[in-house]
């Protein structure tokens, strides 16, 4: 089919706009990447694009020897691992339990789990509750409150409902109990949806910093995202981090790092894990969205 001049023109303009959008979407990140590899003193004059002008690894060295950074990285990693494993366990087993055919009181139980999503409790009552539970300045505040997520359960449940029932039934005849069936038969069959929800939980846990802001003052429990928040919002903090590095190197070495370049290096290190799982994220998140859209 021949295309008219107008259509060709449209295609060209459409492509140009989308290319521009792509440039706008990645430029700030690439700029930050260049800054993180650039000499701090040199960067003060500005003008850095997407390539470093005076290449150095000094910024990253500063970040990786900072004890606060290392402690925060440890908390973040442990938190993500525990939150993902335990969260999946609770959410998945609830989803499986609720898909059992003929389960008495299924409706009531589902309603009980769903209702809280519609009741606006608010920040302060939640905070007081955490305090009564002894979760202020407690590592478990990162794990326990998020163990069960209704939306994730709905996603898993709708996947389980599509599975063929024969396998389950034959296992039952062989005398397997509920838990064996869940872990040995249903679990391996539902790996796609588990990967999706696992990514979902872990990215959420990795990116979260308001939990620390609200419930944690203890320095030892700060996370990477929280550290970055302080670096972004408190210029003095980043400056003092770079000062320490300069001082430890002795007077003869010129200041190679500044608050801005150290901040850039921290931001890159903090976002690298997201970048690494991004290909999977894109695949599964979008699947999840579409599933969510269908199931409403």
């Amino acid at each position: 089919m021949k295309r008219s001049f107008g259509e060709k023109l449209f295609t060209v303009i459409n492509t140009i706009i989308l290319v521009l959008l792509c440039v706008v979407s990645v430029y700030p990140y690439l700029n930050q990447l260049a800054l993180s590899f650039n000499d701090g003193m040199d960067a003060i004059s500005g003008g850095i694009t997407i390539f470093p002008r005076e290449f150095t690894l000094e910024n990253y060295r500063t970040v990786f020897i900072d004890p606060n950074f290392l402690a925060a990285a440890r908390v973040s990693v442990i938190r993500v691992i525990l939150a993902t494993i335990l969260g999946l366990l609770v959410t998945y087993s609830a989803a499986y339990g609720l898909t059992r055919r003929g389960l008495p009181y299924r409706k009531q139980l589902t309603l009980f789990l769903m209702l809280p999503s519609y009741i606006p409790v608010g920040t302060i009552p939640t905070y007081i509750n955490m305090r009564n539970l002894g979760l202020i300045n407690n590592f478990w505040v990162y794990i326990l409150p998020g163990l069960f997520a209704f939306y994730n359960m709905v996603i898993i449940r709708s996947y389980l409902q599509e599975l063929p029932p024969e396998m389950e039934e034959s296992a039952k005849i062989d005398g397997a109990n509920d838990f064996t069936i869940m872990f040995r038969i249903i679990f391996p069959m539902s790996l796609p949806v588990i990967a999706c929800v696992a990514l979902w939980i872990s990215v959420g846990a990795w990116n979260d910093w308001t939990t620390t802001l609200t419930y944690v003052t203890d320095r030892e429990l700060h996370t990477l995202q929280y550290l970055m928040m302080r670096l972004v919002k408190e210029a003095e903090l980043a400056n003092s981090m770079s000062m320490q590095q300069t001082m430890s190197k002795g007077a003869e070495v010129k200041a190679k790092v500044t608050g801005d370049t150290v901040k850039a290096a921290t931001l890159i290190v903090t976002t690298i894990p997201i970048l690494c799982v991004y290909p999977f994220l894109q695949k599964y998140f979008i699947k999840g969205i579409n599933l969510g859209a269908v199931k409403g």
């Binding site: 366990l89 609770v90 087993s93 339990g97 608010g122 302060i124 009552p125 326990l144 409150p145 069960f148």
Partner: peptide
């Protein structure tokens, strides 16, 4: 269905402690 109820139990407990319990605080 004992097994199924045990599987749902952690979710129920979690909802009670972290979603229903704070509702009481609304009185504040």
């Amino acid at each position: 269905y004992k097994g199924a109820y045990i599987m749902i139990l952690p979710a129920i407990i979690s909802a009670i402690i972290f979603s229903y319990l704070p509702m009481y605080g609304i009185i504040m």
